[in-house]
Design a binder for these strands. Structure first.
Length: 281
DNA sequence: ATGACGAGCTGCGCTCGA
C-alpha cells in the first residue's frame, strides 16, 4: 500500500500536476495540505474518475486538508475533538482547517497542516505550540484505543539540524527552535517513528524549497514534511521516498510529495527483527 | 538574498505562507 502526503499550495492551481503525479505513482492514499478552497469548490471529479474517494476539510484562501483514497475512508473526523488546551474554543482555533483523520485498511490515517508560526515572538507562534499540544492530546486518545497510526503532513518543523540546508543560519529560528522540536517530540513520544530516517540518516534531503532566491535550483531546502508511523507498523515499512521531481515543474508547489510503501501482507524481517535498529527521534 | 516568490481575493495592492 502506497501512502503519500503533499502540500500542494492550492488544489485548483496545481490540479493537473497532481493528476499527472497520481497517474505516474498510483498511490493508494494521498493526503493533501493547503488546498485553499471551500469544500463546495473542491475539484472532486478528476479524482473520482480515477477511482478515488475524497474526504475534504477546506476553507477560503488558507489552509485546507484532504484525504484521497482508493479504499473508502471510514470514521472520518475533521479537526480536534476534546482538546483541553486553553484557547481551543477561540475563533481562530476553530476556524482553521488543519486536521482530518480517517480509518483506512485498519490504519488510523491522520493528515495535518501544522501552523507555520511566523516567528518566535509572534502570537502565531504561541498558536503553533498550542496546536501541537492539542495534536499530542489527540494522539494520546488514539493510543488509548490501540490504533495503528500513520500521521503525516506538513509539520513546519525540521526535527533536527540534519533537516536544514544551512543549520548555522537557521538553527533556533522558526521551524528549527528547541520549543518547536520539543513540542513535536511530545506529539511523537516514543510511539511514532519517522519513516524517512529509518532508511536515510544523512543530511541533504529536503521536502520544501523557498520560492525566493532560487531555492530549488540551488538545492537550499528543508525537510519539514513527514510521515510518522506506529512502532508496530515499522515491520511492514518497505520504503520512504521524497519525490523531488514535481518541484521542478512549471509553476510548482514549493513542497515535494513524500511517500511510504507498507507491505501489509508481509514482514520485512531482515532489518526490523533487531530492536536496536529503532532510532531515537 | 526574506520588499526579492507565489496564491487568493472581488484585486488593479494587500495578506499570508515558510
Amino acid at each position: 500500500m502506497l501512502i503519500a502526503t503533499w502540500n500542494v499550495n492550492s488544489i485548483r492551481t496545481r490540479l493537473s500536476q497532481i493528476i499527472d503525479w497520481i497517474n505516474q505513482v498510483n498511490p493508494d492514499i494521498l493526503c493533501l495540505q493547503e488546498t485553499k478552497v471551500m469544500d463546495d469548490n473542491f475539484p472532486v471529479e478528476p479524482f473520482e474518475k480515477l477511482g478515488y474517494s475524497l474526504e475534504i476539510y477546506g476553507q477560503k484562501s488558507y489552509n485546507g486538508v484532504a484525504i484521497i483514497s482508493k479504499i473508502k475512508p471510514e470514521n472520518v473526523k475533521k479537526g480536534f475533538n476534546g482538546c483541553t488546551e486553553s484557547n481551543q474554543n477561540s475563533e481562530i482555533f476553530l476556524d482553521q482547517k488543519r486536521l482530518i483523520s480517517a480509518d483506512i485498511n485498519g490504519i488510523k490515517i491522520i493528515n495535518v497542516y501544522v501552523p507555520n508560526g511566523s516567528s518566535l515572538d509572534s502570537s502565531k507562534f504561541a498558536y503553533k505550540i498550542n496546536w501541537l499540544n492539542c495534536l499530542s492530546s489527540f494522539l494520546d486518545e488514539q493510543e488509548k484505543k490501540g490504533e495503528l497510526i500513520c500521521l503525516m503532513g506538513d509539520f513546519n518543523v525540521a526535527p533536527s539540524n540534519l533537516d536544514i540546508h544551512d543549520p548555522k543560519k537557521y538553527e533556533g529560528g522558526i521551524m528549527a527552535s528547541e520549543i518547536e522540536r520539543n513540542a513535536l517530540k511530545n506529539v511523537l513520544k516514543k510511539r511514532l517513528i519517522d519513516s524517512f530516517r529509518i532508511f536515510e540518516q544523512n543530511t541533504g534531503h529536503w521536502s520544501w524549497w523557498d520560492y525566493r532566491n532560487n531555492g530549488f535550483e540551488l538545492n537550499k531546502g528543508w525537510r519539514i514534511d513527514h510521515i510518522y508511523i506506529s512502532k508496530e507498523l515499522t515491520s511492514k515499512l518497505k520504503s520512504c521516498v521524497i519525490d523531488c521531481s514535481p518541484r521542478g515543474n512549471l509553476r510548482p508547489s514549493d513542497h515535494a510529495p513524500v511517500m511510504i510503501e507498507l507491505n501489509l501482507n508481509g514482514i520485512n524481517e531482515d532489518f526490523f527483527e533487531d530492536e536496536d535498529n529503532f532510532f531515537e527521534i
